[in-house]
Design a protein around this nucleic acid. Structure first.
Length: 571
RNA sequence: CGGGGUGUGGCGCAGCCUGGUAGCGCAUCGGCUUUGGGAGCCGAGGGUCGGAGGUUCAAAUCCUCUCACCCCGACCA
């Protein structure tokens, strides 16, 4: 490919709109351009990378026995009404009417459509299992699109759905997808971690996310240094407290004046106690009514755990007026003693012998509160976020808290959609049964950004070979030199004939400009040819990642490059 | 949606506070010279200062409204 024929507008300066590294470099390297918030054009270079990811994912899905389909992006409201999600999906679902006034939406995901297809076409256990996937543009009207391709509104996704006669078979498929995903992300050259994830309201006993490790990631995860336990922070368990969980009660609770002392830090400092002895009382509104959650002052609530324990989908911290109404006191003085609300305590609270709580009275706190003697608890559970100070819940080893970008998510759907949409089959006994389903997603365009978050330096992108838009960049030092020109074009043709992807910079630019652009684009191998190298019958090959250069004789340059590429692609 | 910020040639910015003929760097076009890490000189083109309304003799600058975008929080591939 000749540079002069490509639409490849590189930028010297960082666009003001881009903050994230991948966003900046995608723009600067001329791979994407923004059309609207969270909506991007892919230019030729960006599309080449996107296609590479897509093909790796496709190959691994096919290898795992899945079949590719293509479902419509525009979907009728009826299906969503049938599944019940037309009401619950929220504003991320882009809705509109067609010319006849029929409610429609742009598909953010395809459970409804695929289940509809399968219920029409599959009637017998003999047709099962079935694993279908597609690679398609999705639209989710995100609250806040950001970081370029990492969270766009329109994005390319691989979504797959499997159908089974029973739960055991769906779990077999889950395992196959787990392995296929791992292979795909490995081939993409990503440093990733598989973590246990919250399976959410859909239910199911387990779910996994595939996280590309990057400090700029939007997700946090806990990972054990000693064993293979790793979980999304919102899922990560806290090991039950060790030692004596029920210390003997001491003196009776006593109210003390704490004027204008509200936060945990202020209370701890005022009463000269450790923040861990100050218990905070969080008042939440849920669709099932208000509740109170107790946590040690030095701990952070995990709202996902609270939601799951309560079985609610709505969990919002109560506002000042509502707190006043429920506790009789201002924010900062709520406490569990005598509070007429369902009371849920984090397990760590139970290990305290004497704690400080709000007194439900402005300007007062209670001291010497004993959890078992003084509180009427609805339930005690693990309700907080783990920290790097907590031991691993599996092996007791040290936990690390890392940041990651979610590029894949697999979970079991069970019979949620098959029941809602009445997707059934006849089993061997002639009985009508609901299908068991699994669901598997990969953020294809997000992988492009994640690979850059993981592979870059001050000069630009460093692509893994498998994703690079071109494998080799070819730079002539002086195209005005006839010998150089002739040798460069001949080499370009030879490389292409050998099946290598090569970009020849035939622009009338000075070498420095080309070097900068190639570092920015991040092609793995760069070949420089000029009068000086030609005089020795050689070319200079530079590895983008290591920055090492070697002189290679022109007569075996093609085989040298082929070797380098196959070495990196196949280990 | 709440909080913070930015809109001035294609890109990055100054000018705004204190109203008075719209500027700089890069990019673009033409010419000459250059050619191993974002070249030099000469010349040229390109902007209703996000939009609307208002104040004023006069608005990029002051006021009101509005739109777009970015960053921090609640959603997810």
């Amino acid at each position: 490919m000749l540079y002069s024929r490509l639409l490849l507008p590189t930028l010297k300066e960082n666009p003001a709109e881009a903050e994230a590294v991948s966003h900046r470099l995608l723009l600067r390297a001329g791979m994407i351009r923004k059309l609207a918030s969270g909506i991007y054009n892919y230019l030729p270079l960006g599309l080449r990378v996107l296609r590479k990811v897509e093909n790796i994912v496709r190959e691994e899905m096919n290898r795992a026995g899945a079949q590719e389909v293509l479902l419509p992006a525009v979907q009728p409201a009826e299906l969503w009404q049938e599944s019940g999600r037309w009401q619950v999906y929220g504003k991320e679902l882009l809705r509109f009417k067609d010319r006849h006034g029929r409610d429609s939406c742009f598909g953010p995901t395809h459970e409804e459509v695929i289940t509809d297809l399968v219920r029409r076409e599959v009637h017998s256990y003999r047709q099962l299992p079935l694993n279908l996937y597609q690679i398609q543009v999705k639209f989710r009207d995100e609250i806040r699109p950001r970081f370029g391709l990492i969270r766009g509104r329109e994005f390319l996704m691989k979504d797959g759905y499997s159908f089974h006669v029973d739960e055991a078979d769906s779990e077999t498929c889950y395992g196959e997808m787990y392995r296929a995903y791992s292979r795909a992300f490995q081939r993409c050259g990503l440093n990733f971690k598989v973590v246990e994830a919250d399976s959410g309201p859909i239910g199911g006993s387990f779910s996994h996310e595939f996280m590309v490790l990057a400090d700029t990631g939007e997700d946090s995860l806990a990972s054990c240094a000693a064993c293979d336990y790793a979980a999304n922070l919102e899922k990560a368990e806290v090991a039950p407290p060790q030692g004596n969980p029920a210390p003997a009660p001491g003196a009776a609770p006593e109210a003390v004046a704490t004027p204008e002392v509200r936060t945990v830090e202020e209370v701890a400092a005022f009463l000269k106690v450790s923040p861990r002895e100050v218990v905070k009382t969080l008042i939440y509104e849920t669709e099932a009514g208000p509740v109170a959650v107790l946590l040690r002052g030095d701990h952070e609530v995990n709202e996902v755990k609270v939601k799951n324990l309560l079985g609610v989908t709505e969990l919002i911290l109560a506002g000042p007026a509502r707190i006043q109404e429920l506790t009789g006191a201002e924010v900062g003085f709520a406490g569990p003693v005598g509070l007429n609300l369902p009371l849920y305590a984090d397990q760590a609270v139970m290990a305290l012998a004497a704690m400080v709580t709000g007194a439900n009275r402005d300007g007062y706190h209670l001291i010497q509160v004993h959890p078992q003697r003084d509180l009427v608890l609805t339930q005690v559970a693990d309700l907080r976020l783990v920290t790097a100070q907590d031991p691993c819940p599996r092996c007791g080893g040290a936990l690390e808290i890392l940041r990651g970008i979610e590029v894949g998510h697999i979970f079991k759907l069970g019979r949620k959609y098959s029941q809602a949409l009445k997707a059934t089959f006849l089993d061997a006994a002639g009985q009508e049964q609901y299908l068991y389903m699994g669901c598997y997603g990969i953020g294809v365009s997000r992988i492009v950004a994640a690979a850059i978050e993981q592979g870059h330096d001050a000069d630009g992108i460093i692509w893994p070979l498998a994703l690079a838009p071109f494998q080799v960049g070819l730079i002539p030092i002086a195209l005005t030199d006839a010998a150089t020109r002739e040798a460069t074009f001949r080499l370009h043709d030879e490389l292409e004939a050998a099946g290598l992807e090569v970009l020849l910079d035939d622009r009338d630019e000075r070498p420095g400009v080309k070097f900068k652009d190639y570092d920015l684009m991040g092609l793995p191998l760069r070949v420089v040819i000029g009068p000086k190298t030609l005089a020795k019958g050689q070319a200079e090959v530079r590895h983008r990642r290591s920055r090492e250069t070697v002189m290679v004789g022109l007569d075996h340059l093609v085989s040298y490059l082929k070797d380098q590429i196959s070495k990196e692609l196949h280990g």
